[in-house]
Design a binder for these strands. Sequence first.
DNA 1: CCATCTTCCTTCGAAATCGAAGATATGGCG
DNA 2: CGCCATATCTTCGATTTCGAAGGAAGATGG
Lengths: 372, 372
Amino acid sequence: MRGAQGDLLRLVAAGHAESRAELARLSGLAASSVSLRVEELIGSGLLVEEGAGTSRGGRRPRRLRLSPSAGLLAVADLGAHHARLGLLDLSGTPLVVEERPCEIADGPEATIDWMSAAFEDLMAAHGPPGVPLRGVGTGIPGPVDPATGRVVAPSRMPGWNNFPVAERLGAHFDLPVLVENDANLMAAGEARSWPKCETLMVLKAGSGIGCGVMVNGALHRGRGAAGDISHVRVRSDSSVTCSCGHDDCLEAYASGAALMSVLNEQGIEVRRPADVVALVEDGVPEATALVRNAGRLIGEVLTVLVNFINPDAIVVGGSLSPAEPLIASIRAAVYERCLPLATRDLEISTTRSGPDAALLGAGSLLLDAVLA
Amino acid sequence: MRGAQGDLLRLVAAGHAESRAELARLSGLAASSVSLRVEELIGSGLLVEEGAGTSRGGRRPRRLRLSPSAGLLAVADLGAHHARLGLLDLSGTPLVVEERPCEIADGPEATIDWMSAAFEDLMAAHGPPGVPLRGVGTGIPGPVDPATGRVVAPSRMPGWNNFPVAERLGAHFDLPVLVENDANLMAAGEARSWPKCETLMVLKAGSGIGCGVMVNGALHRGRGAAGDISHVRVRSDSSVTCSCGHDDCLEAYASGAALMSVLNEQGIEVRRPADVVALVEDGVPEATALVRNAGRLIGEVLTVLVNFINPDAIVVGGSLSPAEPLIASIRAAVYERCLPLATRDLEISTTRSGPDAALLGAGSLLLDAVLA
DNA sequence: CCATCTTCCTTCGAAATCGAAGATATGGCG
DNA sequence: CGCCATATCTTCGATTTCGAAGGAAGATGG
């Protein structure tokens, strides 16, 4: 899949191109060269021709798709108490997605071995015979050094610090391996649903607060830690010490975990962020007020970032995102305080990709490694 | 200068490559193709061979440079009360740089016509005969829409709002025209001095506070307004209303203009940011305390941004930057409050390019247009 | 000083790519 | 229905690019 052929496959797989003509436009190659390459790719069974597309005023294009038998990707999104697992074809379309209980606190060896077994399980149960697994990837709820595939200084993952996750996964599968922060994966996944957005911020509001940034269609990692907003100091009357050792971090006020602990102290029992959402939908005032305050704090932090990187859109996902007051108060804070220039075309909305965003993102990023 | 040849010229002009071998490595072309192209470029007078470089263990490379007669760029950096003007060769090296008084409040027509005359003046006085002007560019102390070359909602530039600067400049010169925010130009210029930095934040601390960001070696503009940090709300006891209509903007506390107005109220007369620097160097405690406080406030804002985009370096420039306590307190705030992961390899220092950074940046960006 | 290694650059036949022209297919319009 | 405009895709000779081999020039190390 070297060079030019890989580029063409990538364009088709990523959904950017569906016909030879589109490939020619996007790849910069001459139409004749594209035809040649495509013929070879069809010959080798990686691409298939599938009916005709819609005309744009002339002859209808012959639609190209990745062959369903070209290969599969196994991807996971690890959470604190459960994991989402899925099989995708090379175009990133899910064949299966499952959620299974899984304690990340059991430590890296146990979790990764469990995940590897689950991948093989999925392949056996849902993989069409003869279709090879071409890559594996997982999202981690903590910082990941993308170069080494190690977890770095995570806050709620005992035993994981500096563990070589990619290496361990690679020991099970002799395939391209992707290990990435979960919010970053969400950003990569969401980006496929926002094709016109060059700069995209994706906020993951769940037990913790995560954020991923796409710049020019690529995930921005900085030196590996980019996207953190949870340990920003917020304006607040009281004073709370965060797990990171500093005072008044956003996470200590506005994360799902923080909201749950306040509610539990008030005698309202909640076990998961989704419970908080349910309380809000039931109109429980304590919950609504808390969520609204969380949204305001998050929005005030986003204010700084919106002025600075001036994104096309902010997408809010994560288990807390269905709570209407959250996004409403985020919107209010951003639109009130940001420069008009920065907000004039800014869209702030909930996820378009849904709960599988991170899995889709893992597929999208893995594809680059598989077709390298 | 189309296509491949343009790419090669760009690599030489930007200082990334100095020999055929380096060009081959960086451009991805085969060494033989590079040789062929270079021979043509030398034949057409754009490149010249200039002696031998230093050996890296084998035969010495034959150094390539842009021909001094390939063309010139005229660039300017407009400030409130003065402008820096310069002529650069296509490799971005300055032939002349001058500073001339110029009131931006005189309005766009007068200022741009004055600038055009000054460019022609410089060409007549310092341009070698027969060497053509190939592009003109200017930095503006306010937001610029890069697509249209218009100024958008500037704060201290009466009469400039929505004025088509690029168009007016283009009316004088039938050449590629660049109009860009001054802090963005500083960022582009500074980036040439930080070749290993993929993500770079450049802070301009002068009368106002500006910021430019380089991501993956390219200027990040977002929707056109990226880089603004001056209207971020800061934590403060008192309350000041900023010119933007909001309370407690960073600019209202930490800009050179804000510092000057406080000092003047205290009976210490200052007229320019450089006067504040002089007071600090003379050990005037009021000035030092003010500057230190400004650095702390700026640093606290940078804290959020450093965690978020995780840059390789933060460069501080602008007329206030020579004040030692400023950068010291910025450093202190950032290192104290940011995540260790984000600061472990972060460098915070003053400009390497000096006062001409914006001019160099204009040259660097113009080059792309000229060699397109 | 000579053999050997490294790096830089060129030569030349093979291979990939281009681009102009044409073949194919479709929508729109009188 | 026939013709034109438009768009997609293919054919084929011309051009560009590649890459392996080799020559040129210098470093290294006995």
